[in-house]
Design a binder for these strands. Structure first.
Length: 269
DNA sequence: ATGGTTGCGTAGCAA
């Protein structure tokens, strides 16, 4: 089973790029992020014609996540639970979890669009956006801890908006004050992976400076000024069955590309 | 360099 993550930066702006990549890569499951549209305007039929079932959690203008799957969904969950009873209901569409049945039983897959959090500081104080990011990461940690107790193949796919180490960016000094690279962000990410989740890319391919995102500004792609922020985080039961992983960075050089490229894991599941 | 790029929605925010 091939499982991929792809932040498309608007699904309606990617009606050419996404099907083109699906036809060549033929993944079994694809987690999409940043749809930037409501469910009613998502091109469901386009993906059904390519053989995919569609699970959707859209939102107007911002955010929005989906899972495309050649296998039928046994379960769909659109909510990352809140952790403080006093928290207002979270209206941002950033989480979608599904279960499919693989060759050896259930496989749980989530599409995650972790908050960006910039600017981290505002008027010398921690911004509301950065607080929201850290709180969201705390919620993800609690939920991941629960999912790991199921002791089943679990793959948390997505745009984590975290630059984990200096090897995941061209020049870490330029990101020192960025919400993606602040020590508190990286500590919160480690707190999640330390629960027992292994990045598929790091398990198979330890090469530094392999990126999944290049911004649109300043010729970042041509200069290879990218960052690696899209990950497939795997439970032990998933990583045991991981055969290979790749980043389809050629997609970034096509016409009207997303600023992110797909990352794909091949699992014997 | 008080700029850079794209998308949404049609001004200004978000990334």
């Amino acid at each position: 089973m091939e499982i991929a993550s792809f932040n498309v930066n608007s699904i309606r702006a990617r009606l050419h790029a996404v099907p083109l990549w699906l036809r060549e890569a033929k993944p079994d499951i694809v987690c999409l992020q940043e749809l930037k549209t409501v469910d009613a305007d998502f091109p469901i039929e386009l993906f059904e014609e390519l053989g995919y079932n569609v699970a959707l959690h859209g939102q107007k203008s911002y955010n929005g996540v989906a899972v495309l799957s050649k296998l039928p969904f046994e379960e769909i969950n659109m909510r990352l639970p809140l952790i403080n009873s006093g928290d207002a209901e979270d209206e941002q569409a950033r989480y979608l979890e599904v279960v499919v049945t693989g060759e050896n039983g259930p496989v749980r897959v989530a599409s995650i669009y972790l908050p960006n959090g910039n600017p981290a500081m505002e008027d010398g104080a921690v911004s509301l956006k950065y607080q929201y990011k850290l709180n969201w990461m705390a919620r993800l940690k609690v939920h991941a801890q629960k999912l790991l107790t199921y002791e089943e193949p679990l793959i948390l796919c997505g745009d984590y908006n975290v630059i984990q180490t200096a090897d995941d960016v061209h020049d870490a000094a330029l990101w020192a004050d960025d919400a993606l690279y602040l020590p508190q962000t990286r500590a919160a990410f480690r707190a999640i992976t330390n629960l027992g989740l292994t990045s598929a890319y790091e398990q198979i391919d330890g090469r530094p400076h392999q990126y999944t995102y290049w911004g649109y500004q300043g010729g970042a792609r041509a200069k290879n000024h990218g960052i690696r922020i899209d990950h497939l985080l795997c439970s032990a039961q998933a990583i045991d069955h991981l055969k290979s992983v790749r980043i389809d960075d050629h997609v970034r050089d096509r016409e009207k590309p997303s600023d992110h490229v797909p990352i794909i894991g091949v699992f014997d599941l």
